[in-house]
Every structure is written in structure tokens, then in C-alpha cells.
Simulated scan of single mutants.
Amino acid sequence: MKTKKIFLSAIITLTFLSCSKDDLESSSQSNQSEKTVLNFANAKEMQSKIDEIEAFKISQEEQIMQKLLQRSNLKAPTLVDVKNAETKNLTEVDKNAILEDVKFYHQEKLKAIYSERAHFGFTSIQSIADEINFSKLIDTELNNKLINNYKNLFFEFNHQYVSIYDKISLVAQPNKNISISGKVLNLRDHKISLPINNAQNRTINEGIVCSGYNNFIQITYHCTVGASVLQYDLAGNTWVETYFNNKLSCLVLSNAGYVLYQCYFFTNPGSKANYLVNAPSNAGYSLSFPSGIGSQITSFGVKTTGTVPQYVGASGNVGGTFSVQIGNTGSFLSVSGTKYF
């Protein structure tokens, strides 16, 4: 199992780009200066680029976290801080303060998306998904345009747009190619290395972990499984790589509906999803839910087998305490709960 590594934030430094409406319009489209084909010597090199992009995105999220804290002269809370805090009633003043921070967060996220594109020299499918999710509150016209132009590349769940592909969406571009070892990949027949079979994200369990303050804050979970076929040698021996994602998201109710907001996820130890198969010859798979900081956090796992397991569902539990800051008040708002599924 490979789990997502949260590190390298000290190594990567970023300069966020300005974020005017003109920037939003122009940055949502691929332009001729961007790379038309991403060439990788082998699958390992492509995975290295994916890891680099993920580390870049993590560093961006941490910088935005610091900006949010500085706006309210706060420090990041610990689980002890959150559990010892007084239970707070949500007033309209508090709600408005949170929504001001949500708007600021979305503006910074859009800047970060365009900074990522400038840094790596291309517009990935994942960055478009991010742009859809974080333009919803800021620019309705842009949001609708992106959804209409790229709707075949995404599915919607729990008020969010997600790529139909797995981690390859971090390097894949709409209507452009990826080349590995001189061979062009067909994204519709998604592959990590050579001959590939249809593999798209498949949601097999999702729902609300907990909510609070008249559903003003919601914490959601999402379990996804998919598979791709890898060919390792010239004799044609193939293996199936099945990938798993456990995602937690924090949503706040705005005048544009539920939108993502940065959260401190203190997830209970033992929170996990057990992925179920319908054939007794294939063992299932277990993956823990993550803790961390962000509007969305994900744990990722991979299992390689010689057959094609048919994963038909996921059971388990996820719970914890989840906290968001209230701008200009010097405090945080928390919700807690556990979901068995």
C-alpha cells in the first residue's frame, strides 16, 4: 500500500500570481505556450512528476493556511485545543466572518491553481477540476463555462467536481497527449505503462460524516476504486493495478450553495474503509482515512494482482473532530461525529 506523504513543504517556495477576472478567463483555457505533449521516459518518471505536483499543491495549501491564520491573528489548533474549547453558538456575525474567510480562501486557491500551471507549464485535468470547485463562489460565469466545456471529464459528488481518472489527471491535459517510452497514451483507455483497459474512478460509498450549526458545516467522505492493466514484459504477462482513494471534505453553506473551506481534520484512529469483492478468491483491501489540513484530504492505496477483482462496495467507519476558523473572532468552530457505513 502506498499512502500519501505529507512533506516537502519546506523545500518548495511559491509566489502566488495575481487573480483578476481577466486572469480567471485566460487561465481557464490552454494556450499555445503550454506543452502539447508531456513526454516521459518511463512510468517511474511520470510518477515522479505526479509526486512533485502533489508536493507543490501541499505547500500551497500550507501557505494559504498561514495567510488565513494571520488574517485573524490565530495559531493552528491542536486536538487538545479543539476539545478544550467552549461550545460556541453560531451567530450571524460569526457566519458572515466565516464566509468572508471562505471567499478569501477561494481567491487564494485560484491564485494557487494558476501558479501551479505557470510553474509546470501546462493545464492539467485536475487543475480544471480545482478551478471549477473554487470558482463557484467567486465567478459564476467562469464556473458555468468550465463545467460546460469539460463536463465529460468529471463527475459530481457532494457538491464537488472530481476527475473521472485517478492520479494521472495531475499530468493529463484535455485533448492532449501523454507519451511514455515513445508510446502515446489514450486517456479513455487509461494506462500507467503499456496496453491498458478502461479504468475510470468509481464511487462505491460516500456520504456525510457529521454536520453542525443547522447544517452550516458538513464533513463528507468519499470512497473510490478503479483499476488499470499493466504489462510488465515482452511475453505479454499482465497484472491489474487497483487503486483506492479515501477522501474527506469540508463544506460550508454559502449563498452559492455548499462550497469547500479549509479545515483541520482530526480523524479518529481506526477510521477506515474495507473494500469488498464479490469473488472469494480475491482478498479485499483496507485503507485508513487521513488526518490533516485542507478543504479536501485524501489517502491513496494501490494493490496489484494477476486477476481482475470486482470491488462491489466499501464498509467501515470514519469519525473525528473537524475544526474551521472564524475570522476576526480569535476562535474556531468545530463539529464531531462518526459515520458507520
Rank of each mutant, 00 (worst) to 15 (best):
K2M: 12
T3W: 05
S9W: 01
T13C: 03
L14D: 10
L14M: 12
F16Y: 01
S18E: 07
L24F: 07
L24A: 00
L24N: 02
E25R: 15
S26W: 07
Q32T: 10
N42R: 05
M46W: 08
Q47N: 09
S48H: 12
K57C: 11
Q60I: 01
Q63F: 00
Q63L: 13
R71P: 00
N73V: 09
V80L: 08
D81C: 06
E86K: 13
K95R: 12
I98Q: 04
E100T: 11
D101I: 09
V102P: 01
Y105R: 04
E108C: 12
E108T: 08
L110M: 15
Y114A: 10
R117D: 06
G121L: 00
Q126R: 10
I128A: 04
A129H: 05
N133A: 02
T140M: 09
L142A: 01
L146E: 09
L146P: 03
N152F: 08
N158K: 12
N158P: 00
Q160S: 09
Y161I: 03
V162I: 15
K167L: 05
A172M: 00
P174I: 07
N175G: 04
I180R: 07
V184C: 03
L185V: 15
H190D: 14
P195D: 14
N197V: 15
I204L: 15
C210R: 07
H222C: 05
S228P: 00
Y232C: 11
Y232I: 14
L234H: 13
A235P: 03
W239M: 07
Y243Q: 14
F244H: 09
F244W: 08
K247F: 03
C250S: 15
L251Y: 06
V252N: 05
S254R: 04
L260F: 06
Y261N: 15
F265Q: 07
F266W: 02
P269K: 12
A273R: 09
A273L: 10
L276I: 15
S281R: 09
N282E: 14
A283D: 07
Y285C: 00
S286Y: 06
L287R: 06
S288K: 09
T298P: 02
T298E: 15
T298Y: 07
G301I: 07
G316K: 01
N317G: 06
V324C: 10
Q325I: 11
